[in-house]
Design a protein around this nucleic acid. Structure first.
Lengths: 343, 343
DNA sequence: CCGAGGAACGAAAGCGCTTGCAGGAAGCGC
DNA sequence: GCGCTTCCTGCAAGCGCTTTCGTTCCTCGG
């Protein structure tokens, strides 16, 4: 019988009840070999009957497998990241894993510190969502932590980030951005401007690169295209839009490199009485849930955030291979009401 | 020196380096009494120098304090919950805690199961965000798990949920809903309709109660007011709006009991060419970030989700008291462009 | 019918930490 | 200078589990 009162059953209780040793009970529950099916079944039955759940701390301490994953996001309150988190958390639950979430607030040093913390917590896998840095020095510290984690048997997966020695879920930011730009060019726009995120993020340079190559393919000079480097937020979008309106009044289309910034762009245009899309077309990127409900409904490049979260967790579950896997994701152009031919 | 190569330092390494026993080192790092300040400082210095981080599994197993909190939400991808999570995760990080997040998908049995799982994980605190159930039987299982958790020394805090024996962060749903209804009545509306969430949720009955009492206070009969019970989602809002438009064509104002549903209501009205607010006024509830960017910008009752998350975590940090604390939160009416006097 | 070779199981040693308890060094009054 | 507190500090016993290494018991070929 159980030792203390009011205490959940221990493995030793299950073992006693089933008439076997702890070793056998442990093996039976981990469905490892070396136990006869008859005994294993009995142990499992007893465990179920007693409502036994292994203490994960003891398990981990003794060298067993962990089933806690760490998820790093810039800001869980941001729709882009919360949709990714939704995919990760849901899939993890299906596999009996739980998920620890951390904010990193767009700071590579904070990222490295969080990874270090998760390593200390002995998580079994770490999923890093969020852009990489253009400056290799900034990326280095994160890379070092991730490498150390993998060397000790942990599984690391990044989302939308290359240049790291681990499995990755990679949307084709460049191609998706190009498709948005092509859509605008197709409509006849020639005076495009970009509200980009921070210039030190890979995601920004990738997306911007896509836009520039699409522009160049039309015979235009990408260097003539104004680019506002602002924070990846609604407020950043507002600042970028204001800047473009003032310095480049002839602009007929503004490409925001994520939907949050596009929201800000739209709000500035509305305040200033600029009609969208009649006077200026606006595009976003990501297709967060609310993009369809903005005024006007936002034309944007769709990234399957939730599926990316699912894919990332599933990669984390698979055993590592020597050469890092790169799992591409779909993307698509979603044309709504914020784009139209130029006046 | 450390034992194995490639291995992070253990407490015993810190102790050796500082020339004290593990016991003293442990006490020094936990800043517990019984250690001279001189020795404690030395130990802390050595620990910092070696980059020592305690193994939380060993710590917990040995009976030490935990610094992992569990957060239960219906759906982390939903803005309401992700904003709460943002507050919780940020505050937790400041205090050196990490946060495990679980989906419950609006199912009380899943909730209870998740709490059980978190108990098995020996989290130090559990924060449950999400409505309670009107049916006491459904609430009972959750209550039982939460009670058991608290009996074993865990800290439980609920957000927006009463009838549970634990600390709570409680927005005044009824008053906030009443203020929205009063705003519409003030504008001259007399034919209100409500797009409510699921009728078995306390949040819904509370908010609906607020609306009904405001209506009654104007001398109108609340029972004449149509109510559509639909899921708490954008799709639910669409269904509710469709139902009201068809069965109660004279309606001049639709109150959605959360912003997600309001988004759906607006989308249906837009599709059907009903002008908002010229023909029909629409209100939401919560004031999620995007409410300001909808078309038209949504008039809604503001709940400080992020602050609620912060408050919940801070409550969890405080020692329990015999009588559960109820921490009220502010709420406010945010008037934007989706409401106007009836035509 | 005997011995070799497995398969199934058990004993016990940790994993890294906290903490109750005992021991030792100061500090006090006399 | 002695006995008694009062502080500090160290010893060692676990926390609940996994895993290595033996041991036992079968099975089967010769």
């Amino acid at each position: 019988m159980a030792g203390r009162p009011h205490s959940r059953p221990r493995l030793i209780d299950v073992a006693a009840q089933a008439g076997v040793s702890m070793a056998t009970a442990s093996r039976a529950l981990a469905s490892r070999e070396g136990v006869s099916e008859r005994v294993a079944a009995r142990v499992r039955d007893v465990a179920a009957e007693l409502g036994y759940v292994a203490n994960p701390h003891a398990r981990t301490l003794a060298g067993g497998p962990t089933s806690v994953a760490g998820l790093l996001v810039y800001e869980i309150g941001d729709p882009y990241f919360s949709e990714i988190a939704s995919g990760v958390v849901g899939t993890a639950a299906e596999h009996g894993w739980s998920v620890q979430i951390s904010h990193t607030e767009r700071d590579s040093r904070a990222e490295a510190a969080q990874i270090r913390l998760m390593r200390a917590h002995r998580v079994g896998a770490i999923i890093v969502a969020g852009s990489g840095y253009v400056d290799p020095a900034m990326e280095a510290e994160v890379a070092r932590e991730l490498d150390a984690f993998q060397e000790t048997g942990g599984r690391a997966v990044v989302i939308g980030r290359h240049h790291l020695r681990c499995d990755a879920v990679l949307p084709d930011n460049s191609a998706a951005a190009a498709s948005v730009a092509e859509h605008l060019l197709e409509l006849g726009h020639r005076r495009l401007a970009v509200v980009a995120g921070p210039r030190h993020l890979n995601t920004v340079t990738d997306r911007l690169g896509g836009v520039r190559s699409a522009v160049a393919a039309r015979g235009l000079d990408p260097d003539d295209m104004p680019v506002a480097y602002v924070p990846f937020t609604r407020e950043g979008g507002r600042a970028g839009a204001a800047q473009i309106l003032e310095q480049h009044p002839g602009t007929t289309a503004i490409l925001a490199l994520n939907d949050a910034m596009a929201t800000g762009v739209l709000s500035v245009l509305r305040e200033r009485g600029v009609a969208v899309p009649a006077e200026v077309s606006v595009t976003g990127f990501d297709d967060i849930q609310v993009a369809q409900d903005l005024a006007p409904a936002l034309t944007t490049a769709r990234l399957p955030m939730s599926e990316m979260g699912v894919a990332a967790f599933e990669l984390a579950l698979r055993p590592p291979v020597s050469r890092p896997r790169r799992k591409p994701t779909s993307h698509g152009l979603v044309v709504r009401d914020s784009t139209a031919p130029p006046a």
